[in-house]
Amino acid sequence: MSHSLFYLLSFITLFFALLVVFAKNPIHSALYMVMTFFAITCQYLILNAQFLAIVNFIVYMGAIMVLILFSIMFLNLNQDTEPQKSSLLKFAGVISAGLLMLTLVGAIVKTGGGDVPFELVNSNIGLVKNLGKVLFNEFLLPFEIASVLLLSAMVGAVLLAKKDIN
């Protein structure tokens, strides 16, 4: 049951991810990306990681994609104003994406990922209580550093967006 669900969801995820790349209209691309994130949210749910699922839902679908949609709507992208990349740049893009894929495939093969979908050792780790305990005991320092990093990124963004510092 959960295996076939996993394959179905993976198919949906990849299908919409491909549509993100192939869609002509940037707004449609962004909306397909929302669907991709939704499928990933469902993946978290079948891993019994309710908290991660709902956070993925709120942060990626509810906040980040809204902001991306927001900025695309203001840019008024269409065929005439779209900057055309030279073929050299396109070639470089293909090569770097291929390298990234090679790395990912290598990583999956190294971890021994075979035909069985990944399963958690402790199936309740994704619930709020357990996740909170792990985050605030074992991984407290990385967690705090990550939040400081986010804060400094935010301050930096505000500083860059401000025209006159005075």
């Binding site: 709902i54 709120i58 679908m61 509810g62 809204v66 927001f70």
Partner: peptide, 21 residues
């Protein structure tokens, strides 16, 4: 569901799409 409050937030944040689209 044991993340009920967060579910409400998720749905609220999804509501923006109706208006934007």
């Amino acid at each position: 569901i044991n993340v009920g409050v967060l579910y409400v937030f998720g749905v609220v944040s999804l509501g923006v799409y109706g208006v934007m689209i």
